[in-house]
Design a protein around this nucleic acid. Structure first.
Lengths: 165, 165
DNA sequence: TTCGTGAATGTAATAATATAACAAAAAAAA
DNA sequence: TTTTTTTTGTTATATTATTACATTCACGAA
């Protein structure tokens, strides 16, 4: 027999329910495993940047990251952060949202996928979803122009379930 | 009977063949008509910004526009350009490519559409295409997250037919 | 182990993009 | 004309990102 609490919890959307601490820990663990496997170096600074990105509930900017790392990495400069970000992007551990000038942890670092981002115009939170099917559709629309398409950037703007209430 | 030249011309893709002067003139004419109809003011400065954007064969940045307008509008400052750009965007006469920090003329100012941009990584040129169908597909992929989607930004990166040769 | 090499980070300066705040001028409305 | 609103001017500054060169650090070869 279910308590009222359990029922409520069940109703919560995936967006609301995820245990963020767990989520962060898991993402960092996976990142370490992936780097070990690829024999690339997830240094302290890179790890700290990745951790900050994951700890934030919203996509975060380079200068925010810099600020939050001032204690542990007093010598860090903007360029330090951007270099770490470049590394993380190259290795599919984070994504850049160019329209916002922010960065977000990749939800599917182990899978080759076409990401799309749902950005809430109210609270600024963002979610990633796989959009491989949509990508095919876009490529179809683009084919008359004879472009050879290699990469996509897809951002959707709207209102998240939390802000809708 | 067709000459060889005619045949060749026919084979040319839409991307290559368009007469840019004509294209610019037409875009500016349509813009004026639209503004008249909407009773909004396409001022000299705004017109000049729009014209510059259309004359460029590539998406162009605000400071490039500013530079090219220095003669006709010596008092123009960055903010002047950005204000004109805001007006043009609000009225669907141009689009912003946030990833590049550039602006491009809207090919379908009279139609309510979901734009997608094909950006050539080699030459920097870009083309717009309508992606309403793809947008539906993306929304479908996004629906489990319960986002209420309002707007989309779709950029595809690849190689244009001119650069492929 | 030490030495050499390439990778990573430090340091300083600056480029490129975009906005804030308030004043003046121009156009539209009353 | 007078009032009001819109547009532009003016100045300053915020925000995001990169260049160039020096130094330090980690890893592999001898």
């Amino acid at each position: 027999m279910e308590t009222e609490k359990t029922l409520k919890k069940r109703r919560k959307s995936r967006f609301e329910e995820h245990d963020h601490e767990k989520c962060v820990a898991n993402a960092l663990f996976v990142a370490e495993e992936l780097c070990r496997a690829k024999k690339i170096r997830l240094t302290d600074l890179r790890f700290a940047v990745l951790e900050k990105i994951w700890r934030c509930e919203k996509p975060v900017g380079a200068y925010d990251i810099l600020e939050s790392l001032k204690n542990d990495f007093p010598k860090a400069a903007p360029i330090s952060i951007y270099r770490a970000l470049d590394f993380l992007i190259e290795n599919s551990l984070i994504h850049r949202l160019p329209a916002e000038g922010t960065f977000i942890g990749c939800r599917y670092p182990e899978e080759n996928h076409v990401p799309a981002f749902l950005v809430c115009s109210v609270c600024g939170r963002a979610e990633e979803t796989k959009a491989d099917k949509a990508y095919k559709e876009i490529k179809k629309a683009a084919s008359p122009l004879k472009f050879k398409t290699k990469k996509a950037l897809i951002e959707l703007y709207g209102v998240c379930p939390l802000c809708r209430r």
